[in-house]
Amino acid sequence: MPKIVYIEHDGKEHVVDATVGVSVMQTALDHFVPGILGDCGGACSCGTCHCYVDAAWEQRLPPIAENEEIMLEGTLHTEANSRLSCQIRVTPEIDGLVVRLPRSQVL
């Protein structure tokens, strides 16, 4: 099982065993990782699963699609390495992925 590391804004770390095929957002919800809301359940329609991807991983993830780009443009606290975690699927290749969570998912 690939492992995903979530780091909350206050530095608290959660290492989670993820299931291949599930999104990084849903994995967080399934393991009760605080700091991700995922209001729309993975439809790329709410921007409440925002995360920052560690530099080492940026190039190894699928590129940002147009609908994710639209959402990220309107999202708060974005950085160059911002992603919506519902748009990243768990694969064996992303074992060890580190995502940091923003101060807040809502206004």
Partner: peptide, 10 residues
């Protein structure tokens, strides 16, 4: 989605 954004609300 481009028009109703958290950024605009802020």
């Amino acid at each position: 989605q481009r028009i109703i954004t958290p950024k605009r609300m802020l």
